[in-house]
Design a protein around this nucleic acid. Structure first.
Length: 492
RNA sequence: GUCUCCUUCGUCUAGUGGUUAGGACAACGGGUUUUCAUCCCGUCAACGCGGGUUCGAUCCCCGCAGGAGAUGCCA
């Protein structure tokens, strides 16, 4: 039988790390088993729905290169794939359950339910949940409530006796006593929309989903879903609950742990392959030693059996490491086009790129590539090229073991060695040797010579390699900044 | 409160009835280097606790503790 899995997010917020981890696991499982990956939009919560979320879903999956075989936009044999367009289907099935006595109309107000919950919480009652107030209304009672204009919800009758078990590929059999299942959950809301439980079960059945891979937070509702399948007389699909992604403090990963929206990672300059690689490694491993995986490798080697059972903490630093690795491995041309928008946004170069800027960006890439963890790092790294903000604090120019007097001397003579050397085309090695000799002569460390030069040219003690920096701003500008540095050091 | 799941270095993980318990990130130290970074080398660091079973348990069984999740007209 062909494997059919789905990623079924609800467009109520931006796609986050946990969500795409689920998407990726589904996608890789489908690909590695020759099955189909289906995308379904679960927009049954009209209160929290937003168009932005839906657009974010599509753009994020596209950016990651995750293509769905069936779903919105591409279509498929079991559409529509957006739940709000399947409104009538859910209503029909819910009413069928009512007709069969497996579900019933409930007229309780949200206020009554709220009060009930509060009372149960305060009394620490062992029994929590709906009190089945409307479970056995007579036709007359219902007619009267209807006449008052109350729009009812539909609740599923959960048995009070017995227990329900489902099998999870990772976890094994999971059993709950029926009395512990949320009593008579709402399956159709008063606005006619289904709740998650109903819509999910119906669609998974109608779309012939074979494996349900979702986060472990759904485990407790597994038995409820089985009850629903049984009520309809449908075959229960296979379950595989995925370990959750946690923050540093061991709680479910959320905004307070830092960025979780994939869009934010993208904006900061993470590469999609780094995100895919790292996120897949959270809760999954091939052999415990292989670290790097391309997307197409994962499409081949991903196995359900290698998924871990316990929750995993998301490590931002390891993601940074992966990203740095991928940046360094990328072709220079690609990095050039990727860093361009950051330089433009910083106002360093024009938006329609001039030929000159384009050439400059290409020259920036090699020295910068070794130093970036995220693409946006390019801005502070190259600011000195586009903005000249001289360091006024003399002490910054003074290298370790040197003093102001020697620093002035080092900068003056060092500048001459540097400029004349470069103008006459001497090798960097020769110039370096000569600068070292100067240090020896002044009886200071090599850094005592290089530091004032570096600070004068790059306006920072930390910079790209000196000769690269000079090359990027040009010899004339270099000379101007060196002179200016000397002026700063010599003024009182 | 009740129910369900989980438990190997700080983090992600590998692994076995007898191993020096392996790798990666982080941290720390060193080397290369004009700074930073890269790169290379090294150090630190784990089987939650208590009972069993066994010649022997990190691994099998039972308790416990801790953590997480669920208990919504949200998913």
């Amino acid at each position: 039988m062909e494997v059919r899995v789905r990623y079924a997010p609800s467009p109520t917020g931006l796609q986050h790390i946990g969500g795409i981890r689920t998407a990726l696991f589904n996608y890789f499982f489908a690909r590695s088993s020759g099955g189909k990956f289906i995308l379904r939009v679960e927009d049954t919560d009209r209160e929290r729905y937003s168009d932005e979320s839906l657009e974010d879903l599509y753009s994020t999956l596209e950016w990651l290169g995750v293509k769905w075989d069936e779903g919105p936009v591409v279509g498929g044999d079991y559409g529509p794939y957006i739940q709000s367009e399947r409104f009538d289907i859910y209503k029909k099935y819910a009413e069928q359950l009512v007709a069969e006595g497996k579900a019933y109309y409930c007229y309780c107000s949200p206020e009554r339910l709220e009060a009930l919950r509060k009372e149960q919480a305060e009394s620490k009652s062992e029994y929590q949940g709906y009190d089945r107030h409307c479970a056995n209304l007579t036709a007359e009672e219902r007619a009267e409530l209807e006449a008052q204009g109350i729009k009812p919800v539909i609740r599923l009758r959960v048995p009070t006796e017995g227990k329900t078990t489902f099998h999870d590929i990772l976890m094994g059999d999971i059993t709950r006593r029926n009395r512990d299942i949320s009593p008579d959950p709402i399956i159709l809301k008063s606005d006619g929309f289904p709740t998650y439980h109903l819509a999910n079960v119906i669609d998974d059945h109608l779309m012939h989903i074979t494996h349900i891979m979702r986060a472990q937070e759904w485990i407790p509702s597994g038995p409820l879903h089985v009850l629903l399948y049984q009520a309809f007389g449908w075959e229960v699909p296979q379950y595989c609950h995925l370990p959750m992604v946690m923050g540093k403090d061991g709680q479910k990963l959320s905004k307070r742990h830092g960025s979780t929206a994939v869009r934010d990672f993208r904006a900061k300059g993470y590469l999609p392959e780094a995100i895919i690689n790292y996120v897949t490694l959270v809760g999954w491993s091939l052999d415990g030693s292989t670290e790097f995986f391309t997307k197409s490798e994962l499409e081949k080697c991903f196995r359900l059996e290698n998924i871990h059972k316990s929750p995993a903490v998301f490590d931002y630093k390891k993601l940074d490491w992966f990203n740095g690795q991928y940046i360094r491995a990328a072709a220079d041309e690609r990095i050039a086009s990727l860093i361009t928008p950051y330089l433009q946004e910083a106002g360093f170069i024009q938006d329609p790129l001039t030929e000159e800027d384009k050439a400059l960006v290409s020259r920036i890439v090699p020295p910068v590539k070794e130093r970036m963890k995220v693409l946006s790092d390019v801005v502070p790294l190259t600011a000195f090229i586009f903005r000249d903000e001289p360091v006024e604090d003399k002490t910054v120019y003074i290298g370790k073991g040197s003093d102001l007097e020697k620093t002035v001397e080092a900068l003056r003579r060092g500048s001459d060695i540097l400029l004349s050397g470069l103008r006459s085309g001497r090798s960097h090695e020769d110039i370096e040797t000569e600068l070292s000799a100067l240090a020896t002569e002044l009886s200071i460390k090599v850094a005592g010579v290089f530091q004032p030069i570096r600070v004068a040219i790059t306006n920072s003690t930390v910079s790209l390699p000196l000769f690269d920096s000079i090359e990027l701003i040009g010899l004339d500008e270099t000379e101007r900044r060196l002179r200016r540095g000397l002026t700063i050091l010599e003024e009182n």
